[in-house]
Amino acid sequence: MSLVSIDQIHKYYGENHVLKGVDLKVAPGEVVSIIGRSGSGKSTLLRCINGLEAYQQGAIVVDSQAVEDDEYKLRLLSRSVGMVFQNFNLFPHMTAGENVMLAPKLVLGQDSKTSRAHAQELLEKVGLGDKFDAYPNNLSGGQQQRVAIARSLAMSPKVLLCDEITSALDPELVGEVLKVLEQLKAEGMTLILVTHEMNFARDVGDTVVFMHQGKVWETGPSDEVFASPQTSELQSFISAVL
């Protein structure tokens, strides 16, 4: 039984046909890496999964909930789907701890004591137990991204979407964020990552999805896809980035 099931999605931005019949099934606990050139529709696909973008045709079901263009349903859906962004999007006027506590308090109605304890626990988990009271602008990019991950986890999502979450980081900070993702995988979290980290996709990911011109061009188990890409597009993409 798939946790995320995407069936023949079509997405247009005006005249621009961005997703042209995308299918994707993600099992619980699976780590899926979406790779492909810039503009191939990776972000758009991810943003359709949690309803940040509406799609025009096809169907997406996440955790038995249909993803529809309906504000109330999308709010319910957002409890099952977490998202981490390339540029963190932390709330600048709140401390790391407050960033993590906000949604559990407002959305789940947790009392301050519970959400505070939970936030502390999550920050410790991402290696930032001592940064509860730090403001985002006093944290490094890698630290900010780990806070953002903790903030998503606070809502106990079933699946975590990550859109190039290491792309805005200095190279030496990438590792600490990827380590958190590895740890999440080990705990059984379902991850869908748009990434340029090919080594990570190959070594940690279960499945690779290569997107090209708005379609899933090629997909399969990570080791196989990287060892023997079938299409010439993927072959040239891999040789260009590795």
Partner: peptide
Amino acid sequence: GQWEAGKTLGLSRRQIFIRIVLPP
């Protein structure tokens, strides 16, 4: 991205406006 982060955390439009957008 501030609106989007709030949305993906399940906050309502009103909560996002008051808690996330307005103070900064």
